[in-house]
Design a protein around this nucleic acid. Structure first.
Lengths: 123, 123
DNA sequence: GTCATATTTCGTTATATGACGAAATATAGG
DNA sequence: CCTATATTTCGTCATATAACGAAATATGAC
């Protein structure tokens, strides 16, 4: 029961939904996700931690970098008609589309340039 | 996007999940749901309001009584493997089983006896 | 070893949320 | 009309949560 409420709670924040949708294209590094959301690294890290604890994400480390991906192979999510509609419309929502466009750019940048940008932003 | 977060937020509370599962058997009156959860009427009413605003429940009035039911015809909810597992295990969870047993008793009581019990509880 | 860097954890603050009781609203009976 | 009753809304309080910056941790380069 706690697992269920934890899962739904994990998905009840807009930024965390954005993370889940960003990762549907494939694995991303934390620094890329930070660039996408434009939030403090600590905030993004906390959000990712919540999603991972809820069983939605897996993570792997590569040197200093941590990559997150969706856990397993999620199918098209259905939770009754209402939710099916919501999820379909979510992919068409301006925010997710905007995220998708921004993600294209972010994925074209090399990781070093991205991380330098985060460092500059932090100061 | 707000609809999605509202829906997931609606399902992120244990008592609200219990309400949803209780209603999977069919329509119930608020006083029956109050008896099930053992919470204050105002709290149950608030929870039901959240679920209805999220599109999960429909309501109809019959005199002083308000009956709630699941909206439309929900199928077995799937939101990726993780959620499918959670929902399957939820139906086997001690809490939901206990609720099911208690619901049997509650549905055998006539509404008047139930409501008299709530009134006594309120004082 | 030192210094730099990416990420996570911790502590703080403002805001949101779940519980309750009281008040308001809607319906029924005499 | 008055009284009773079921439910909803409102206000309050304790607790949870999302944001941030600072500190801690882990990795890499020299």
């Amino acid at each position: 029961m706690r697992e269920a409420t934890r899962l739904f709670s994990a998905l009840s924040d807009e930024n965390r939904l954005r993370l889940v949708f960003a990762l549907r294209h494939g694995e991303l590094c934390v620094c890329q996700l930070i660039a996408l959301l434009g939030l403090a690294p600590s905030t993004v890290s906390k959000h990712l931690s919540i999603l991972r604890d809820a069983g939605l994400l897996d993570a792997r480390k590569e040197g200093r970098w941590v990559y997150y991906r969706l856990a397993g192979r999620p199918k098209v999510p259905i939770l009754g008609k209402q939710v099916a509609k919501i999820f379909q419309s979510l992919e068409r929502s301006p925010l997710i589309r905007s995220d998708d466009r921004q993600l294209e750019k972010i994925c074209k940048e090399n990781m070093d340039a991205l991380c330098r940008r985060q460092a500059r932003r932090a100061s």
